[in-house]
Each structure stands twice: as C-alpha cells, then as structure tokens.
Design a protein around this nucleic acid. Structure first.
Lengths: 252, 252
DNA sequence: CGAAGCATTGACAGTTGTCAAAGATAGTGG
DNA sequence: CCACTATCTTTGACAACTGTCAATGCTTCG
C-alpha cells in the first residue's frame, strides 16, 4: 500500500453521489463563489474522472477537451525542451484548475503525481458558459491571476536562490499545501514527487537535491521517514538557516 | 539625445487628441476587440500619463489606483527579496497591460525603462466595468493567460538554460518585441535596460552577462554599436550556437 | 532471492560568481 | 565647448557552488 495514495475518491463525494455541496474542493475551486443557478449550469457539463499516479491528464501540443478542478491529489505541469531538458512549471493541488478554456492546444503536459480525482467541464461549453455567468469568469480570472503570482514567485526562486534555499522553499510550499499541522510552525507531509522531479522543479540536479536534503537532515532542520515522508519541526528555522548560510548543527 | 527615447507621445495620438481609433496600441491592448459601446465606456474612465525613464509607475505593497495599457515605451516589473536580491519578472511593451483590477495592493514594482506613455483606467471603475462588459473581461483574461504563458516560458529559461542560452533568449525576445526587420532573420534594436538589469532578468551576474555578449560579438553572432544597439544578422544562428556549445568563430 | 528503479555519497571538473581594476560612456558644470 | 565625474561596461584572476561521472546502498516488486 502506497503512502502516497491520499487521493482516492473522497468518501463524502461517493456517499453524496458527487454533489457539489459535499465536494472537498468546494471552497477553493472555480465554483467557489457560485450561486445555485451557476452551480446547476456547471453541473450539466461536469463529469468526474480518476487518474492513476503518473497517468497523463493533458498532453502538450494536443487539443484540450476539458478544464478540470482537482478534487483530490497532486498534478505536475511540465515543459520539455527540444533536447530533452525538462522544467516542472508548477504543482497543482486540491481546488486548482487544470487546462484552460481559451486555448485549443495545450502548451505543457499535465500528469497525475498521486492518484487524482478530477472534476471536469467540457472545454467549449465551459468557455461559452463564462460569457453568460460573469461571476464565474471573474472567479476564473482571479484564479489565473493567482497562478500568475505563483509563477512570478517561482521566477525569484529559480533566478535568485541558492540550491539550499530552493529546496527549503520547495519543502515549505508542500508544508503549506499538503502539510499536516503539528503545532504553530511544525508540519509533516509526503514529498509527492521523486528526487528527479524535484530537481526539474528547482532547476537543479538530482544529486544536488539529495545532498541538500541530507544536510538539512544532519543539521536537524528536518526529519525523514523513508525517503518521502518529511517532518519539519520549525518552518521559519528551515527558511532562515537556508538564507543565512548556517553551518553545522542546531545546538551550539 | 538618447537613442532610447523611442517613446515620446506618438504624433498620431497628439494630433488626434488621444482618440482610441488612432492609438498605436489599438490592436494589442485590452480594448483590442471592443465595439464602440465598450470603447465609450472605457474612454470615460481613461486618462493618459507620461513617465520618464526610471520613473516609478506602480510600487510593490502599495495601493493600485489604476490599470494601464502601454501606448509606447518599455516597462520593467521587479520583485525584491528581503536581503536585496532582485528578480525582474518581466518586461512589458506596447499593448501590454500594467497593474490588475482585482488586487488592492501591488505585489511587484513597475518602473518605466524608456519614456513611457500609459493609457490609464481607474482601477475600481475598470473592475466594475468588467462585469457589465464580458467581452472586455474575456480580453482581460486572455491577456492574463498570455502573461502566464510568458512566465512559464521564462521558468524554463531560468531553470534549465545556460548563461549563454539565457542571453541569446533575451536578445531574441527583444528582437521579437522591439526589433526592426532587416530581412528574413536579421533584426536590430536597442537593449532598453542596463547590463545590471539584464543580469537580474536572467538570474546571472553583470559580469557573466557582459562576457557572454562579448563572446557573441567575437564569434560574429551579433554586432554592437555602443553598448546598447544590437544587430543580429541571424536569429536562428544565435539560438543554435547558444544551444550547441559552439566554440570559436563563424568561419571554418 | 534477484532485478530494477530510486536515492545517497564521493571525487573531480566546469560554469558561474566574487573581487578587483581599467576602459568606455554619458551627464554636469565651469 | 571641454573637462570632470559618476556610472556603466569590460576584462582578468581566482574561488565556490553546482554539475558530471561513478559506485554503493536502499526499497519495491516480481
């Protein structure tokens, strides 16, 4: 049994026959602000699909058939260079939107990382629905702006931060999005992707990622169970120690 | 007289008393698809402002009073880290939109690079106008998606490309946006920003940028007049030579 | 139990950053 | 109009961080 399989069809959705009112992503998805009228319109063009880990959701350069809200699970978005170098341009979590209604073709791949439950809307219908429901379009625009903010933030990470800071930033991102709270600043979570993928996300090599994680472990900033499960005793300390070039252990 | 002052109030706008129909950015701005009804609504909340080179247009962490279309000139968007490291997260050109109607506060600085003419819309009015004119909101959404694509593209540049490829990519970007056409693949243009700013855009140091430019000059991939004006005889060759790690001159 | 894939660690190399100095360029004021 | 100064750019020498190559260890799965 995989530790990462946190994304099975949520019980609440199964029991309720996939009613929006019980959807785990209800508060953060594109339908967050919808009134009952808008919700009915969305339900008409909606369907659910489950994706297995590593399964392709959307392929770059191919037609987009749907946009989809993530109900549960983690998705990675990847861009590939002609010579094979790859950059993960984002991870997407519960509530995030995959695909876009305005484009015929996808410009990057989207793959399930964990098991993923997706609430899909047929693309063209969704697009024309936006014109009739300005609130939904506004919500769509807000979510896109939020994606843009994330991308800008990541430009700083890739352009300015050291390897150590990059890894620390990555762990904090996960702590925010999928971490369990163990007190004010303590979090624990599974790293949903391989070291290889972390490297492609951070613009580093797999070896550098591995070394940085080992260093953080050695200095007590994080604890590991297996290679995937992380416990961060103090998020702030993790970021600080990575910014200042702290050497040696935590204790004087 | 500065070579860079390509952004004075365009004659067409002055003579026409700033009519939208004569606006140089008419085809690419947020008003691109507007009918006369929408255009009138926009004109009511519109005003023009000229910014001098280096002048601040929008300040991070401060209230946004307007969104603005660039009529002419170049704008840089900057994010600052607590310790002073900076990342230029984008350059904006004629037709691009600055600011966003959905946010109270700016999350990055916007500064004029050349002289800039901006067509401003008061933020709140613009925002409420979007609800009444879905076409305008759709256009706003499309432009935001396009910004997102650019940001994703730049993530690949920062995360995967070598110093040389980064500089080549940067020059090609300028060639696309502000280059004069001198035949199929030949372009010439002014680099609107300093080496320092180029470095902050590419996640490099000023010295590395300078060296890469010198190398390109030495191998005949570019020609320089002064430090700012560039002539690229062959855009494709510039990118190729940077991808393959070509050494030495152009001739065998 | 063996094989395959993933992760860690080590030794070394190379690209890029840092520090330093000299050369250009542009703007200012006499 | 020219000299002066501040800023920007280039170039060099060297250091350091990160990448490359290689070997070992760990985990999973058949």
């Amino acid at each position: 049994m995989s530790m990462l399989n946190t994304a099975g069809v949520p019980r609440s959705l199964r029991e309720a026959g996939m009613k929006c009112s019980n959807c785990p992503a209800r508060d953060s998805a594109v339908c967050a602000d919808c009134d009952s009228d808008e919700l009915r319109a969305l339900e008409k063009i909606r369907s659910f699909q489950k994706f297995a880990p590593a399964q392709e959701i959307i392929a770059a350069q191919e037609p987009i058939r749907f946009v989809g809200n993530i109900v549960s699970g983690v998705v990675k978005l990847t861009r590939l260079m002609a010579d094979g170098r790859r950059q993960i341009i984002g991870l997407r979590f519960k509530g995030d939107l995959i695909g876009r209604s305005a484009s015929e073709l996808a410009d990057h791949d989207a793959n399930a990382v964990t098991e993923v439950m997706l609430c899909k809307f047929r693309r063209k219908e969704f697009h024309s629905l936006l014109e009739r429901y300005p609130n939904v379009m506004q919500r769509n625009l807000d979510m896109t702006l939020s994606e843009l903010d994330d991308a800008h933030e990541w430009l700083v990470v890739l352009g300015q931060k050291t390897a150590r800071e990059k890894v620390a930033t990555f762990l904090c991102l996960l702590a925010d999005r999928i971490g369990e709270n163990h007190g004010r600043n303590a979090r624990s979570f599974d790293i949903p992707i391989t070291r290889d993928e972390v490297a492609d996300y951070l613009g580093l090599t797999i070896e550098t990622v591995s070394r940085q994680i080992s260093r953080m472990k050695a200095s007590g900033l994080i604890r590991l169970e297996g290679t995937r499960h992380v416990h961060v005793p103090d998020l702030a300390a993790l970021l600080d120690a990575s910014a200042g070039d702290a050497e040696g252990g935590v204790f004087p």
